[in-house]
Amino acid sequence: MLFPSFLNILKETNMTLLECKNLTKNYGNHTALSDVSFQIDAGHIIGLLGPNGSGKTTLMKLIAGLLGATSGSIYVREEPVGPGSKNIISYLPDHSYLDGNMRVQDIIDFFADFYEDFDSLRAYDMMAKLQINPRQKLKTLSKGTQEKVQLILVMSRHASLYILDEPLAGVDPAARDYILDTILSNYDENASILISTHLISDIENILDEVIFIQDGTLHTHASVDELRERDNKSIDTIFREVFKC
């Protein structure tokens, strides 16, 4: 356990963890992201919020290195996205990519083989708390439970940047609370979490900052408490007003 005064020293260095510069992504004629620039410091939890089709998943895939940008650049700890950045980014995609025939314990072994920073003990511990039997095959679990398994796997890495694309969508409210607590208690002070979700009211109290994206462009990037102070409204309410249909 680090002392608070030591944490202060670490925080004051305020290292830029992620920098996106003039990021544009086209799919054929369609522009998914247009000239997006922002920075994220180490040790923050950032909500990535925007309506359906606003470019959240595209942005997350670009940062995770699964897509290439049409133009612009992304730096993770001042290095361009590549094998080095993949080592320190733990990414939860918006759909499952695991083999449903594998048992949960086999997937844990698989992750432990694949990622040096994977903590099997932490994974088993979280599985036990959420009453997931590691001997069960993934495909025999409910949709929500499968989502929990994937989130546990992603959060069991000791990464510097966690990118979570809609991690709570299929998870019941009680487990949601447990997962948020787990995120808060496990993430280390120098790691950052970028999290996209539509369940704003569930997560807004744990956020430091929000990024609103609209039609592929950056609308707002601000501290959540500054926004609340400015408008006397919750982030959920501000979102509903900004993106009113």
């Binding site: 608070p4 609370d177 808060l184």
Partner: peptide, 21 residues
């Protein structure tokens, strides 16, 4: 209690707790 403990109790981000303290 420590920043982290208080943050857990309150279910808020440790940075927010740090700022309040």
């Amino acid at each position: 209690p420590s920043v982290r403990e208080l943050a857990m109790q309150a279910s808020v981000n440790p940075n927010t707790m740090q700022k309040a303290l």
